[in-house]
Nucleic acid binder design. Structure first.
Lengths: 205, 205
DNA sequence: CCCGTGTGATACCGATCGGTATCGTTCGGG
DNA sequence: CCCGAACGATACCGATCGGTATCACACGGG
């Protein structure tokens, strides 16, 4: 098919990605499964079929690797927001539902591995660590975009609705992880629709 | 001065609790501030003004200490449920609101240290670790009691309502931790009231 | 053709990890 | 009064931590 594969080398194994990508993939896998602090750089290097030295040629420190990984994960969520807005322009309600469905679809993974941000924040004690700043800015951006979508959906109190939606989204993820609630995805989507229908927080009165 | 204090020893410092209590206190402090995996037994022992040996006389292993600590934290939450039921017998709505207020009151601490369960679960990869089993059983019990309260409150769909309340409660805690939402406590209580008024998930239609 | 860059492999660094062994001391109950 | 249990202190165990140094080799562009 392809005339000249990118960098097959003479390796018998599957076509290898550049080391940096392999390291990030391996780190993702291990960070999710074992937790940030439980994984050593040695284990990451081995799983990436390379060595510790190669890892430290691409990442100044383990924390830098963690930060880079979190940046990629955050970009994934952001692109879900992008897609929601691109597929349903001017339809705030559909945008929110699209985001909610994205989160709901990810719940099976979350149930086994946990939310990358929530799990990572546990191992990042200092509030001014670069990786934590990244997480907090990401969450703040998400809330802002969610608020915008709620405005476009014409709900009564966009700020309140966006906050409540955030609670539901985050809460569904931790509930999926500790396995206390069943049919989490279904319940999450129902609750999100409820918030959208009702507008802000207490709408009955 | 004092005729016979419990166990002052001849220590000049403040009256000391028995070592086991001191160790648990020190562990709680450090586990919350730094995270389970980041804290070494040495650090715990030093903060408890004792030694590693004394610690291992009371706890078979570090994991056992973690488990015992989580058991105590879980008992704290359970007693909040007990109080809610004792102070508002037969009034399910007031019971739920009491629990919600308990969580809301704890949010300032959560914002700085994070939820003990959520943070710990990140460092407990294996699902069948005793400490994780404890967390999951605790969360399951909470959901059951919440469901009972919703039934007593006469909501339409108690199971759905309890699940949504769980999402809100958990989500508010992680949102407080990452600081994305402001006025978390106020918003949480408003959202909880909304769920109680509305009954189950989507009630508008 | 050859040279520099990125790579793999190995060994090493000091520090710390969870956990254990061995002491002497202290203290309270029978 | 005295004996045993709990305690404090210290040293130690092998393993692993994050991070560094060194060296040989493969490979592609000039």
């Amino acid at each position: 098919m392809a005339g000249s594969p990118p960098r097959p080398g003479r390796d018998t194994r599957v076509a290898r990605l550049p080391p940096r990508e392999r390291i990030l993939d391996a780190a993702e896998e291990l960070f999710l499964r074992e937790g940030i602090r439980a994984v050593g750089v040695q284990a990451i290097a081995e799983r990436a079929s390379t060595t510790k030295m190669a890892l430290y040629r691409h990442f100044a420190t383990k924390d830098a690797l963690i930060e880079e990984w979190l940046r990629i994960v955050a970009a994934g969520y952001s692109s879900a927001f992008d897609r929601a807005q691109a597929e349903h322009p001017d339809d705030g309600r559909a945008q929110v539902l699209s985001v909610a469905r994205f989160v709901a679809d990810g719940l099976p993974d979350i149930a086994q591995r946990g939310c990358p941000f929530v799990n990572s924040i546990a191992g990042l004690p200092d509030r001014d660590l670069p990786a934590r700043r990244l997480i907090e800015e990401h969450k703040a951006t998400q809330l802002r975009r969610l608020t915008g979508m709620c405005e476009r959906a014409g709900v009564r109190a966009p700020q309140d609705a966006a906050a409540e939606l955030t609670f539901l989204l985050e809460g569904a993820q931790v509930s999926a992880q500790n396995g206390s609630v069943d049919r989490v995805a279904q319940r999450l989507l129902a609750a999100v629709e409820g918030v959208l229908d009702r507008g802000g927080a207490a709408g009955g009165r």
